[in-house]
Design a protein around this nucleic acid. Structure first.
Lengths: 171, 171
DNA sequence: AATGAAATCGACCAGCA
DNA sequence: TGCTGGTCGATTTCATT
């Protein structure tokens, strides 16, 4: 462990993460060959990364469009600040069918909510559900026309500089 | 195939998707037993779902915090509407280090951008990069204090009604 | 679309640097 | 602690229905 209590991660770990975060079904032998290691070594590191919760889950990504979820909406939610209901409201938002991302934010807006629905009726119902939550003051919804980038992994979006900060001094 | 060109998905497929979208490493025998099918049958359906791009990828989810990405920022980007640069601007946004989600939206804001960085310096650099893009008119960034829900799967967030719409007529 | 048998790949173990 | 090589068990594949 490092002083900051994050697990030690070296360049080899980063290379492994880059591969498995966009294809967890990689052939171990192939990956091992590319890294100049044995299958067992790669397997050992993968287990370590899972144990340390660097890899949290291995998931099959299901295309929302394939299930008819053709509409995506982003909703800004403001709450009545006198009431200390923020946590309850957050829980209520995450529980609504169709909602798949909820962020609690600084600034004049308190929550940002991402939802997917199949048609306009479901969209209306969903926004109604949000407005109905006790303590919710104001909402503003925006329709997403195009998803240019989504769920593209963690390491894949990091700069060299960011990666060096992580692997620093592990050579 | 259905008339609307989406692949046919029945209740069994939905049950399989629910399992693998939050744990792609499930024991096939176990899953097969739960569904009352043979291992091969489950495997056959999984392949079909991958071929039909219902399952797009199988990915290892890497915890951003484990890599020091402790700050998340949501940025609204407005562009100069005279110029038809929208597509180029979208591409430029997705290419910035730290940016992991980009949406093109209706309304007065044109893009919504989600980014992760390790410190305030990287945050400043990133926002500078966005502002510098040719055609970008105005930006407003919000700091995320708490991620209440993220990447929780597709089927898991659907209501019974939504699922029935998909499996309709496939018994 | 689903089955059971055969080939292949990943998980685990004991030992070593 | 990190790695190697080998074994066992699981999964993937295929011919068949």
């Amino acid at each position: 462990m490092e002083p900051n209590d994050r697990p030690t991660i070296d360049e080899t770990d980063i290379k492994i993460l880059e591969r498995v975060e966009h294809d967890a079904d990689v052939n171990l032998s192939e990956l091992a060959a590319d890294l100049g290691l044995s299958k067992s070594a790669v397997h050992y590191r993968l287990n370590k990364l899972k144990d340390a919760d660097v890899i949290t889950t291995v998931s099959a990504d299901v295309d929302p469009l394939a299930l008819g979820l053709e509409m995506m909406v982003i909703t800004e939610v403001s709450v009545a600040h006198e009431s200390g209901y923020a946590e309850d409201i957050g829980r209520s938002l995450t529980a609504i069918d169709g909602v798949f991302q909820v962020y609690y934010t600084m600034g004049d807006v308190d929550f940002i909510v991402h939802s997917r629905v199949q048609d306009r009726e479901q969209m209306n119902d969903l926004i109604d559900e949000i407005v109905t939550i006790d303590g919710v003051n104001e909402t503003a919804s925006t329709f997403v026309m195009n998803e240019l980038k989504t769920n593209t992994g963690t390491v894949a979006n990091m700069s060299e500089e960011m990666i060096e900060t992580v692997t620093d001094g592990t050579d």
